[in-house]
Design a protein around this nucleic acid. Structure first.
Lengths: 352, 352
DNA sequence: GTGCGTAATGTTAGCGCTAACATAATGTTA
DNA sequence: TAACATTATGTTAGCGCTAACATTACGCAC
């Protein structure tokens, strides 16, 4: 049998991807590959003269750095890992849009994960994402598993928790207090002299719970606390569900005269449910939602809500990341963007 | 000056990422690295015996393949590139959720891009994504630039255009006809004996235009075509805008007695606008939307809409991709999921 | 004039995996 | 029984970039 030494291989070689590489650019510019790399990643370390030659060659060859090769060689990628609990919840959509807008300079790419409100799914995604050496991680809220916290604490990249604030950030944090938001909603209904005030909550993720706790606090302070008026379900939130839950609650408690819904879809549904039942809003029923989505102002009657700045949350989170990656120390590790009561017709009874 | 030959370097070496590599697994299992790779990627090529030993070693070492190294070596990544024109449009949210659900087996990751309804932005994203050797690409619609079409046609991975159907797919396609959907909406209003029927359209992306063309066709067929009753704007769609546009149109044309809105948010806004103006829906104004979002059934009165199966679009797109990647030839390159008129109270006048 | 520090650029080899080729054992067909 | 094919496993080197170390030139202080 014909025997060839392993080292004397056939002439065929590995095929690359076919596009120009950093070697091609280096050859054209008359420098070494690491100088090209420096010109693109850290231009201050390359002389003006050579930088111009290199950028010229990059243009001529239409060179695009190979992100996988760079990530392998540096153990660091150009990815920002973002994990949200829902893709269809408008709240996260606004924040995602801000993240994408703020990363639009093309330096970073978003790797989006959907944890489906399951802490263990979030953990699995965090593990997968960290394994790819992201430049930064953005996760929602403050209720990670212990393992997730540890992974993120030990990560060698900036980490931002969004949508909430708390005392114990993994790294950085942008959000607001859901407890205080819920309390503000409850307080508002008390101040508007509603007497038998209920709560409608769906899904009941940790943030929904904190809103409920804040609401309870307001009810206790206003001498109106009645646990029987609190209705929650683990079903996903929807407009239909809001209508259904208020119908159920009113059937049990016809004396109900106001509700705080843990989000705007539920509040809109509560409004529709009242209209179907011939209940006058705000006269016979006050309704307040949470987040202040665009439709709340347009509804008839317009709906009161606790306004949250979801776009700003995403924007500030990326700005924090960028400043850390630029070597700066963030002025604040925790940014509390607060919320704002947006009082509209649905809680404004005519004076009697 | 102390001079050392380049080849006699210091003892310090490149640091890796610190986690177990395929070499560690190979050593533990007593095989070569390529056998471990085959066991994970193409198990049928490895004997049962060795496969068990390898999987055992993978578990013990908690080994996770390095996606960047794999992508570099094979010029192919485990990414599915998905580009949508909007992150905040509920229509795409449902489809994205299906894509994520269908890819939840962990083999692939989603790389999500936001083209913001700009064909040139889509082109730039397609270029960037293709440069990373994705396993598949999903893009929206059929109005790509010539360059984008060429890039995708020449891509060595499956490509699916979603949300629409057409005669000339780049590769594969899952959607429905927006022209026919618009026509069905218009025809419905004619059949319900509305006489002066208008169209409210926002943003007017290509799909919105096709709905408008279909609507016009229905108006011509029904002898009700009046271009003066068509209102469009390039502003982004919203509930508020729907209220505003119907207010404007009614002011100019108090004889208006029905509208087809190019999406559900606009339809809901049109409803609110009528309610504020004391116009009875459906008696004095018929309203039909498009997509049939969850809230349409819950509104008061409930809103008629053209139902589209956005979740199924995403699901089928991923199924097509998976079957192609598994080496199968898809039965159909184009899947038309159609649409369905969902007739509700907002176009059902009481008989007189 | 010398020594030291800094800046700019270059060289080497390795990040982790797999394409491409090699080898040996086993099976099939004429 | 020989020739060819298939299957399972191994070896080599390369995918494209950059960490780590090396070299050289220049500026500055003593």
């Amino acid at each position: 049998m014909y025997k060839r030494r392993n080292k004397c291989r056939g002439m065929r070689k590995r095929k690359g991807a076919g596009r120009p590489t950093i070697s091609d650019v280096a050859e054209k510019a008359g420098v070494s590959t690491i100088t090209v790399s420096r010109a693109l990643r850290d231009p201050s370390k390359v002389s003006d003269h050579l930088r111009r030659k290199i950028n010229n060659a990059v243009k001529k060859l239409n060179y695009v750095p190979h992100s996988h090769a760079s990530a392998l060689a540096s153990t660091r990628s150009n990815i920002v890992g973002v994990i949200v609990p829902s893709l269809t919840n408008n709240v996260f959509a606004d924040t995602l849009r801000a993240i994408y807008d703020e990363l639009d300079d093309g330096v970073f790419q978003v790797q989006l994960g959907n944890s489906r409100y399951v802490a263990k799914d979030e953990e699995r995604l965090v593990r997968t994402f960290l394994g790819q050496g992201p430049s930064a991680m953005i996760v929602a809220g403050t209720d990670q598993t212990a393992a997730t916290r540890e992974l993120l604490q030990n990560a060698s990249c900036p980490v931002v928790q969004i949508m909430e604030t708390g005392d114990d950030p993994i790294d950085m944090m942008v959000g607001f207090s859901h407890f205080e938001g819920g309390r503000a909603a409850g307080t508002h209904l008390v101040q508007k002299r509603y007497k038998r005030i209920g709560f409608l909550g769906a899904r009941m993720d940790p943030r929904s719970y904190r809103r409920l706790e804040g609401f309870k606090e307001a009810m206790r302070s206003g001498g109106r606390y009645d646990p029987d008026l609190i209705v929650t379900t683990t079903a996903s939130s929807s407009v239909s569900l809001g209508a259904e839950l208020i119908g159920q609650l009113r059937k049990r408690r016809p004396d109900l005269d106001a509700v705080f819904c843990n989000n705007d879809d539920m509040a809109l549904g509560a409004l529709f449910g009242c209209q179907k039942a011939g209940i006058s809003v705000p006269d016979e029923m006050g309704i307040i939602g949470f987040n202040d989505l665009e439709m709340m102002a347009a509804s008839y009657p317009s709906l009161t809500s606790i306004r949250t700045d979801r776009y700003q949350i995403g924007k500030r989170a990326v700005q924090m990341i960028k400043s850390v990656l630029d070597g700066e120390t963030p002025e604040q590790k925790i940014i509390d963007l607060g919320f704002e009561l947006q009082c509209r017709e649905s809680t404004t009874r005519e004076k009697k």
